[in-house]
Amino acid sequence: SQLLLTEPAPLAANQDDSTNDGSLRTLLTLCDLLNRELLVLIGWAKQIPGFSGLSLVDQMSLLQSGWMEALLVGVAWRSQGAAGEELVFAGNLRLDEAQCRAAGLADLYEALRHLTAKYKAMNLSPEEAVTLKAVALANSDADQVDCPDSLQRFQDGLHEALQEYEASRREQHRTGRLLMSLPLLRQTADRAVQAFLRLHRRRCVPLHKLLLEMLDAKA
């Protein structure tokens, strides 16, 4: 219930109009959206039950390793119902394969469509989507953990919530199936991070400071 209540309203993209180059415009718009999504994500994380009981160092570590996974749950969730094969980054930023390819994001497109198809086939509920997002953050396997016991409690609390929810729906296999989707989510997020790091290294687009900082933690 708490996760449903604290789920932020979807952001809208601010269409960049500083260039006539369509692909560059797409990238600039996408990176601006991503940076604002990150700001919202950090505020959201603080409201997950148990997160604020972690040390500041562990809060930082989890966000630094799990931010892209958590954000991609949202993209895959929004893209489930999309007509055709679009990726819905925002209600007003829907990219098809050709647009992604032109922007140098063909790899990301393919990975995200795979993830979206998986969730669509599972017919993910809103409760499952918000819990999966929190689980992705809690389970992000940050390499240095300050207080493993608190982290374990945080993870157990989310796992228990998911189990209780599925038990209430008499779905005994759902929890396991959802957790089994985590490797694909991790893999997709890794490919997304690589795509944005590539854009940064090639200096294709100027990245906002927070996005850069979070990518830097992944480099």
């Binding site: 700001l39 950090i42 505020g43 603080k46 500041l56 160092v57 809060q59 400071k209 927070l210 830097d216």
Partner: peptide, 15 residues
């Protein structure tokens, strides 16, 4: 931590 100062600041903000 110095390298990740925006994240650090955002987490320390009360809201």
């Amino acid at each position: 931590k110095e390298k990740h100062k925006i994240l650090h600041q955002l987490l320390q903000n009360s809201t």
